[in-house]
Amino acid sequence: MISIKDLHKSYSIGNSSLHVLKGINFEVEEGELVAIMGSSGSGKSTLLNILGMLDIADEGDYILDQVPIKNLNETKAAKYRNQFLGFVFQSFNLINYKSALENVSLPLYYQGIKRKERQEIAMDYLEKVGLKEWSTHLPSELSGGQKQRVAIARALASKPKVLLADEPTGALDSTTSYEVMDLIQKINQEGKTILVVTHEEDIARMCKRIVRLKDGVIIEDKNINQVLASSYV
């Protein structure tokens, strides 16, 4: 599903340049649930941003579902993001003046789906994350966990190939975190490929595979026995 080879990325800070990713190689098969771990500054978010086409690598190949991702202009990147990827952010990033339902249906709007159909699909996904009754509420009227579930529903609504989650539990307490991870595990069990960036060990243990980054290189890549989040809830 995902294949990256020899990925490099550096940022220039003033006159000096900071080499963040120093040759990353890894593959993700369809249906995997991968945790990308590392302390802050290890390059894990940069990697996720490149995978999410929110950022562009300096060097290296990136193939997503047999499509080589290169020479991206903004328009092309936007189309790929809309087609292939769903995002879940630490700070939820919901549009604050739109209701839960409208937030979820927004990616469908950019896919050119008609309003009525859009709302039906969005409602289905809200139901799936258990927030059907909250569809008309604004993000400000929802709890952190609920917001993240709306964000997950939004990420899923466009039927992406891959779900990218950047510290999805970072802003949540542990109980809510496990609820969100339970949801992510269920989505994974339905066959969705999911990448989770986290620095929390217990969250990483709920994935099927852990990739550890340190100083811009992969220091460990192993499959693990998944801990079911439902056992904590």
Partner: peptide
């Protein structure tokens, strides 16, 4: 700005 960033992340083209 942030809203536009969100819109772009979920598939809005610069043109749109």
């Amino acid at each position: 700005t942030k809203e536009l960033g969100i819109r772009k992340a979920i598939g809005a083209t610069p043109k749109s």
